[in-house]
Design a protein around this nucleic acid. Sequence first.
DNA 1: TACGGTAGCTCG
DNA 2: GTACGAGCTACCGTAC
Length: 580
Amino acid sequence: MNYIYIDKEPELKKALEHLSKGNIWFIDTETTPKDIRLFQVALEKGPIYIIDFLYIKSAKDFIKDIISTKGIVGHNLKFDLKYFLKYDIHPYTTFDTMIGAQLIGLNRVSLSNVYNHFTGEVLDKKEQFSNWGVKELTQNQLLYAAKDVEVLRLLYEKLKKELDKEPIIIDILQKSRVANVFNLRSSYAIVEMGFVQELAKIEYTGISIDQSEIEKQKQALLSKTQKIAMDFYINYRIDISSPKKLGEFLEKKLKIPMLHTQKDNISTDDSILMEYLDNEDKKVRDLISKVLEFRKLHKLQEKLEEVLGYSQNERIHPEFWQIGTITGRMSSLKPNVQNIPRELRNILKAKEGYTLVIGDFSQIELRIAADYVGDEIMISVINKGEDLHRFTASIITNKDPKDITKEERQMAKAANFGLIYGMSERSLAIYAKNSYGVEMTKEEARRFRDVFFHTFQGIKAWHDGIKKELRTKGEVHTKTMLGKPLTAHTFTDAANYPIQGTGAELLKLAVLIFAQEIKKSSLDASVVNLIHDEIVVETKKDQATEVSKLLEKAMKKAGSIVLRHVNVESEVITNNTWIK
DNA sequence: TACGGTAGCTCG
DNA sequence: GTACGAGCTACCGTAC
């Protein structure tokens, strides 16, 4: 392997002269906690340059100009890009081999795992956590640094080939930077590769939190939960937060017949406990309601602690996994900002002088499902701007849509979601009860289901197709609407995956379009949170109106690119804190 | 005392 | 025959 170590400016200039000839740079960095130490870069052929930032203070400035015209290939680029953002370094576009590996379905996606997957050989990673702050780097450290870039060239070729197998091609995406520079055709891969850069920005930016509001709420909750727990212990001699003790008490002391979990523990979750809220024994009623109240408040308290634990100067920097789920949805951690209870959303806010602009896709999964399966009735109801839940309710009750009660509509909402994804009659009845408090007999559930599938025959045909494929092949091969392949082993997985996966693509594409528009307009706006069908943006107060318009437009545009028959709608609001 | 599994709850 | 996808905390049993 041919590498050149560079620690002087004239040599750097010479190297960059050579490097400027290629459009694609294969890169990696070695870092200390605070800073970049080495920047390794190579073209598709030729030597690997190892640039030592410790000895060339001007290196960042030289690289900054050239890299803004290059497509960079790297493994887990979000990591490197966050360092780049610190120095205002912006590559032209990106191709991430870790994301690529996840997209083709590999479970273990470290550089060495992916290398091993394609070559069968082992990549030595011993030097990875060596000290990159020392003055004199060892030969082994330099060899290791160069090798990481060397393997990228191979992985890039292999992954590109795999990603472009049977691509779904969408013209407008072919004009993107990713498609042009890397000659990539597959739509989902284009979106995911471009999105890496946006996600790095989101993590780097973080989001403001209202520390005093958190403290205030925390104290209020603490005094309430402590009182409940203490009273509970005095009355029943049980730790209220122990489901095990509670279950034993209910079953053995109060002689209540309790359901058991699969592992034979006593089930004490809220939906079970709620069954006893109308128990004839006042003691039981009081006990249950105290437990439910305690759990609710305690959960909120925990979430406040979780957020507070990651606070740095009134801001948090949650991590996002770009391919966080099998379907391609993101996940969020440290803290998880995708499951903050509605009651607590006001703890996330815009910084001083700024405001949040919040965009939501309206009923996006239903729209995707209608489009995906091509259900004519569903498509026509949605595109006429009618309320699909009300429509379903009117079909089932045989009433005029305008006479549908709130309860009937809620019921139909449960049916629309559940039945599309293969929910059973039994589950439908349970779901209706738990989520909407609607009692439903098994017979009602069955009739509900029959009418639903008789009306939405596209959905019916789609389900039948899945069942047949599952019967004959034992698994189902599906694709998102941008072409990401997904394999399912159960009927319900096969019904869910492509819809949820397409939703994830739609959100990412919307963020890309929005970011592009913001860049063109030179408005001061940053995406600060993403929650599956929602985009949260922080922007200067006096630019909020303009940013709102761009966000709404970007979301609809993304919708029109991904869906071909169904209109996509978005609702955008402006608020200082994150409230819907 | 450390760790993994489970239950429970939050979000979409 | 089966709605799906996540992350975090506390509890609880087990291993050391």
